[in-house]
Design a binder for these strands. Structure first.
Lengths: 165, 165
DNA sequence: CTTGGAATGTCAACAATGCTGACGTAAAAA
DNA sequence: TTTTTACGTCAGCATTGTTGACATTCCAAG
């Protein structure tokens, strides 16, 4: 549980501290993607494929349009990635029953396998970091990240959390 | 399923918690880069230009090779960015006095101005997030990020901190 | 019911930024 | 001195963003 700063309501932050935060974010994100990137390279995929697999796995049956909002890229960019995943039989696209304009996306067994592998290496790094710092730090970490998101992203982030309850 | 007891050192993390951490990182990084991206677009630059400006500003007189290690890209990729920054007179490259193979990079006044503007919008978002969560959370945030970096990046990150003392 | 507009997804072409390979020049080693 | 290594530059390719054009489907106005 996060207590909003109890003593100093306004904490004084030097430019230097903020700059270190920026650099930490930059270097950490590289670490965050390093392990999945290695796995993906073996298969001839990139980060874009990872993101698609992740969120299709997270919300099975989602539409292309919904995925678009989550990922924040153009549909043309996403389409290219989805096409290759479908060709390789990692993803299945089914025309909507109600609305035939929509395509509903799900992972095949093969897709689930790769997604699991990617999720595993990424989770292990995060688990290690979490373990190293303890649970209070973890809550702080998540709190700061949440406040760094744009408002729409915060909403999507929370909706995803609800979804798996 | 066996539940490890929640003693302080021992942190039990569900798959779901780890997955949320992953997604938080993903969405937050988008927010983290959103404001600078807008500024950069106005000038016809991209994120790669931002990173170069940032670290040249941080370590004035650094060599291309040193910058390469910080950024973790190939010299060919960096070179393209540096060339455009030099053409636009944001960066100056000077042949090394001792070793003429090296180029030492510094920002021009124009370069400093743009770097300041980029740093400002990015810092403001971080400051807002920090303020919203309080100082304990901030420390947790930085601690987790640090443990998420690869070892070489941790070293570089710390060296940069020392440098400005 | 028909028709025109909005929504959804696909195809094509372009831009930014990764990458590898080839190479010139300077320094270091043999 | 000659060969090897290091540093930086130029050329070309791959991934993944972008905008534009378009076919199909749905829905709402008439």
């Amino acid at each position: 549980m996060i207590r909003p700063s109890r003593v100093e309501n306004r904490l004084y932050l030097t430019d230097e501290q903020l700059r270190q935060g920026i650099e930490a974010m930059f270097f950490a994100y590289r670490g965050f993607t390093a392990d999945p990137d290695r796995l993906l390279e073996d298969q001839g995929y990139g980060r874009a494929h990872h993101r698609a697999l992740h969120f299709i796995g997270r919300v099975p049956g989602t539409t292309v349009n919904n995925l678009l909002m989550i990922l924040g890229v153009t549909k043309q960019s996403l389409n290219r990635v989805l096409r290759s995943l479908q060709n390789d039989e990692l993803v299945i696209s089914k025309v909507g029953a109600k609305d035939k304009r929509e395509r509903h996306l799900t992972l095949t067994d093969k897709g689930i396998q790769l997604e699991k592998a990617l999720n595993h290496v990424q989770s292990e790094r995060m688990r290690a970091a979490y373990r190293a710092v303890g649970s209070e730090a973890v809550e702080g970490f998540r709190a700061v990240l949440e406040h760094m998101m744009d408002a729409e992203m915060q909403k999507i982030y929370h909706d995803l959390k609800e979804q798996t309850k």
